[in-house]
Amino acid sequence: MLKSLFAAFVKNLFKKYLPVIRFLLLFLGTYGVLTALYIVYVSLSQGADNTPDFITQLVSVQAESVLAVLGYEPSLKVDPRLPMMRIILLDTYVGNINEGCNAMSVMILFVSFIVAFAQKLKKTLRYILGGLALIYATNIIRIVILSIALYQCPESSDFLHDIVFPGIIYGMVFLLWLFWVRAISKATDEESI
């Protein structure tokens, strides 16, 4: 009898928290798969001469292009010791762009959350693609502004690099999540009317 009461309790508990369990499984599963794929990508794409992966190089070149338009005469050099790009503004070394600067880990986190709250496939895919484009563009702008700030105020590098600019990109991702959840709850409310 105790065994059947326990089984009924667990069954009711499982039913009650099924949406939470679904969310966690989708989020953690998506995050795990995408992270594993990204780790494989990074390990296979770094060159023997310490050239970083393709996405990091692309982000570096695009940030360099924006800096050139702004008149900072940027140049990029492959770091001789580590897989990263050195960024130089007006003949002054300001920092490195490494794999962690390409925003891929932020994008993986974003996609995992959206998939965990997925709705209709077309709507979800459109939101993911739009969000990824916005995150990517924001990251380029973040690198450009950070490079200029490090050129202008090198003494503020730790504060800018470790607090302000991560706050900007993660804050934007948080807002994208809020918009997604709000859109889902609004659609759910409209369906129930």
Rank of each mutant, 00 (worst) to 15 (best):
E99A: 13
I114T: 06
I163L: 12
V78N: 10
M85H: 02
V115K: 11
S147D: 09
E99M: 14
F113G: 14
V111Q: 09
Y72C: 08
I108H: 08
V69W: 05
L146Y: 00
Q62E: 12
S156P: 03
L160F: 06
L89T: 01
F179I: 11
I169K: 05
V78T: 11
L121Q: 07
A137I: 14
I140T: 08
G131C: 09
R86P: 04
Y127F: 15
D189H: 09
P83W: 00
P166W: 02
R182C: 13
T92Y: 01
Q57P: 12
R81G: 12
L109T: 08
D91E: 12
Q57C: 15
V115D: 10
Q57A: 14
S65R: 09
F165M: 13
G130L: 15
A137W: 04
F113E: 13
P166E: 06
D158A: 07
L176S: 00
L121D: 13
K77S: 03
A68W: 04
I169Q: 09
L90I: 02
G100W: 04
S75N: 02
L82Y: 04
M107V: 09
L109D: 07
W177S: 09
R81E: 09
A133T: 08
G171Y: 00
N96Y: 09
I108M: 11
K77R: 05
L125Y: 02
A137S: 06
R126S: 11
S65F: 04
S75H: 02
L76R: 01
V111W: 08
I108Y: 04
L125A: 15
A118N: 11
L67I: 06
R81Q: 14
I141H: 05
V94K: 00
Y93S: 12
V164D: 03
P83Y: 01
A149E: 15
T92R: 13
L176G: 00
L58T: 10
F113I: 14
A103D: 02
L150Y: 07
L67T: 00
K123Q: 14
T56I: 11
V115E: 09
V69A: 14
I141L: 12
I88K: 02
T188P: 00
D79L: 12
S156T: 05
V173Q: 02
V61W: 12
S112W: 11
